[in-house]
Design a protein around this nucleic acid. Sequence first.
DNA 1: ATTATTTATTGTAAAAAATACAATTAATTT
DNA 2: AAATTAATTGTATTTTTTACAATAAATAAT
Lengths: 233, 233
Amino acid sequence: MLKYSKQTRLLLAVDCIIFGFDGEVLKILLIKRGFQPEKGNWSLMGGFVQPEESLDQSANRILKQLTGLEGVYLEQLYTFGQPQRDPIERTVSVSYFALIDIHKYEAQISDDYQAEWFQLKRAPKLIFDQQEMVEQARKRIRYKAAMHPILFELLPTKFTIPQLQTLYECVFNTTIDKRNFSKRVLATGLLIKLADKDKAGSKRGAYYYQLNMQNYYAKFQAFMNFIPNPDTL
Amino acid sequence: MLKYSKQTRLLLAVDCIIFGFDGEVLKILLIKRGFQPEKGNWSLMGGFVQPEESLDQSANRILKQLTGLEGVYLEQLYTFGQPQRDPIERTVSVSYFALIDIHKYEAQISDDYQAEWFQLKRAPKLIFDQQEMVEQARKRIRYKAAMHPILFELLPTKFTIPQLQTLYECVFNTTIDKRNFSKRVLATGLLIKLADKDKAGSKRGAYYYQLNMQNYYAKFQAFMNFIPNPDTL
DNA sequence: ATTATTTATTGTAAAAAATACAATTAATTT
DNA sequence: AAATTAATTGTATTTTTTACAATAAATAAT
C-alpha cells in the first residue's frame, strides 16, 4: 500500500503572529501580501508547509525569512480550518505566535516584505480570518503571562523594573502598584541586579536587571502570580 | 486565479483522545485500527478531514461515529506534523481531546471499532506518534483543570463530593484534605445540593450535587484554585 | 435492641500571601 | 542651592490557604 487513495489532500499553511514591545505599547509585525488574492493588503507573515518540513520548522523558517532572527520564542497557537477561509482553495492554517525583542528585529530589518510594526490596538484590517488569529494570540499571551514569565522574551537582555512593569501594565491593560509589583517580581528569583543604570528614562536612573537563565528555565512551568487578581483573562 | 499551483497538498487527519472516569481511575477509549498500516493495533479514534468540513466538525463527527454522543466537551489540543509521522504518506494530524461521562458512552456502545476503555496508566502502545498525543492531552487536562472546572464533564449529572474529590486526586495523582476540598469546591458557587443521596459508596450515603449551569458558564474562564499548591503541572 | 463499623460532614486556629498605602533617595535641571 | 523627576523601599491590614479531628448518619453484626 503506497497511498491513502480516495482521500482529498489540501494545502497547509503556517501563519505567524509576531509580537514586539517598544517600551510603550504592544505591537505586531505585518507585511503587505505579495500575491493574489488580497495582494497588497496587510497580512500576517505566513507560508505553505513544505513537503520535508515539520510545522515547527516551517514556522521558524517563515519567522526567519521576515525578521532574520532565529531561536526566538515561538509557540503553536491554534489550527484554523474553516473550509472557506481562503477563497482560492481550501487551506488549513497552523498559527504560531512569536515574542521578539523589537530592537533586535530592527537591526535585522529586510524590506522584502514591506513589513511594518503596528500598535496592536491600531492595526489595519487583516485578510481572511487573520483578525481572529491575532485576537486568539492576544488572549493566549495574557493567559500565559499571568502565570509564566513569557513577557521577558519581549525585552532586551538588560531591562529595568519600571520597563518590565510598563510591559505588564500594557499587556493586561491595567495599573499595578509599584511597590507590590517590584516585590512580586523580585520574589521569583528570576532577576539578577546589575551594576549599571538606565539613565534614559529618569534623572536618577533605574538599575538594570537581567534574567537568571538557570532559574528561568527551571521555574518556567511553575505557576506564578504575576498579575494581581487574575480573573478572566 | 483558481489555485495555488506549485504547492504541495497533503492529508489532514483529526485524532481524538477520549477521556472517561469510572469512579476509580482515568481512562481513555481506544479502537483497533481497521485498515493498513498498523491494522489491528490499538489506536486513537481518528479520520481524515473531509473537503466540506471544518476541523471542529470533523472532530465531532469522529467522536460521534465511535461513541454516538454529541454535544460533549471537545477541545483542540495540538497539531502534529512531523513529516514521517505516518509511514504511508505525509499526514498532518489535528488532535482534539474529549471529556465524556463514561456511563453515557456505555449506553451508546457500538462494536464497529472494537473499542475498549483502558486505564491511562496501563494503556497499550499506540501507533505513530499517538503516545505523544495522549501525553500532551494528559498534561493539558491537568493544567486546565487546576484552574477551570472542566473535570465536571467527566461526571454524571448527579455526583457526590467524595466522587468529585476522587476524580481530582486521580487526575493530579495526589491526596487532598477532605475538609479543605469541600470548602474550596462549595466556595465556587458552582454546586447545587440535591435532596437525595448516593447510598452505593457508604452506609451513611453522600448527598448528590449537580452543577449550577448558569454559574458554570459564567465562571468557567475565571481562575480558580482547584488544587492546593499548583506548581508544575 | 444494642453495638460496631464505615464513610460523610463540618469548624477553627495558624500561617502565608496579597493588598493598600507614602516617604525617602539619587540624580539632573533650574 | 533649590526644584524637579522618577526610582526605590517597608509595614500594617486583609484575605486566602493550610493544617488538623471530632461528630453524625446510616448499615451491619452481635
